[in-house]
Design a protein around this nucleic acid. Structure first.
Length: 311
DNA sequence: CGCGTCAACAAGCCTT
DNA sequence: AAGGCTTGTTGACGCG
């Protein structure tokens, strides 16, 4: 039999077939929030482990429920943020009466609440900052300047180069999601348009889409994994049941006189594929193979389009 | 662009 | 209530 004896083999089987199943078993939309029921409780990226267990907790949802944005910085955090970056488009900070408050330099009226702290220490951000700033300035007239970037760089030198993190507003997220639904990748024009619309730098939009794609894929993998686990369980049960049935048939066969025609009442019918079990009819006495193995019809849904291992 | 990873951050839980 | 710890989310980066 196609060994579904399984605990050992099923794992590797899952790994082997997951890729195929990804396209075949999709049940969620790419835009589903990560809080759906089959979510993984923990994905250990460092050890490439996925732990499956039910969970009710979802900080996604809870963050969705956030009033608006938590970008208000503590004084310490604020002080660590390169000034230019704060000035870039983190308008929430404007409520702060800290002397470092640069909000008066930055706000455009429609910037509601956020956002972009960029990594203070990250090379690319620094390297491209002036270029991108110019870009952004053209796009949305934000008050950005290379001067600010330079000041940021100076500030980084004193060691407080911690990566601060932007939180998108609900409006920004919604728009990005909407856009993602329409096309999961962006051409340069779309990227520009979106970044303009969102008051984000094109790079931020690009990164958001990259992350979104990756996480959608991960989510789908999780769902598929869950589905395959269920399939595996079902197959294991089925296999167990059929093995038992086979044993019973063998026992029955031994109890029957060798050439005596089997009364109809004693013919076992495979409950799944609804074929008569007729090893006695086939006459090959002692063969472990039953006629069930020739059944053409898989008796439960199989995502891999293979006939049931049991039949 | 995908992938792996880092790190900031929020929220929940627990202890004091 | 406050503070620490844990866990999940997500913006961002480097590499291939």
């Amino acid at each position: 039999m196609m060994g579904l004896d399984q605990d050992a083999s099923s794992n590797s089987g899952l790994q082997l077939i997951l890729g195929l199943a990804l396209t075949a078993t999709t049940t969620t939309t790419p835009s589903s929030p990560p809080s759906i029921s089959n979510k993984l409780d923990h994905v250990d990226h460092h050890h490439h482990l996925i732990t499956l267990r039910p969970t009710t907790k979802s900080s996604y949802n809870s963050s969705e429920a956030e009033p608006s944005l938590t970008l208000g910085l503590s004084r310490e955090s604020y002080l660590k943020v390169p000034k230019s970056i704060i000035g870039h488009n983190n308008n929430k900070v404007s409520s702060c009466d800290d002397p470092l408050d640069l909000s008066t330099q930055t706000n455009s009226p429609h910037h509601s609440a956020v956002s972009s702290f960029s990594s203070g220490r990250v090379k690319r951000e620094r390297d491209l900052s002036c270029e991108e700033v110019v870009d952004a300035k053209e796009i949305d007239q934000r008050d950005l300047s290379c001067e600010g970037i330079i000041r940021a760089t100076e500030e980084e030198e004193d060691g407080a180069a911690t990566r601060k993190k932007l939180r998108l507003t609900k409006e920004q997220s919604a728009l990005l999601e909407e856009s993602f639904k329409q096309h999961s990748t962006l051409n340069p024009k779309q990227k520009q348009a979106l970044s303009k619309q969102l008051n984000l730098r094109p790079r931020q939009v690009e990164v958001w889409f990259q992350n979104r794609r990756a996480r959608t894929k991960l989510k789908q993998t999780e769902v598929d994994c869950e589905f395959l686990k269920k399939c595996c369980e079902t197959l294991t049960d089925e296999n167990r049941r059929l093995q038992k049935e086979l044993q019973e048939l063998k026992a029955l066969k031994l109890a029957q006189p060798l050439y005596m025609p089997m009364p109809a009442a004693t013919l076992a019918m495979c409950p799944s594929c609804e074929r008569l079990g007729g090893s006695a009819v086939n006459g090959a006495g002692g063969s472990p193979k039953t006629s069930f193995s020739m059944a053409p019809k898989p008796h439960f849904f199989n995502p891999f389009a293979n006939p049931s291992a049991a039949c």
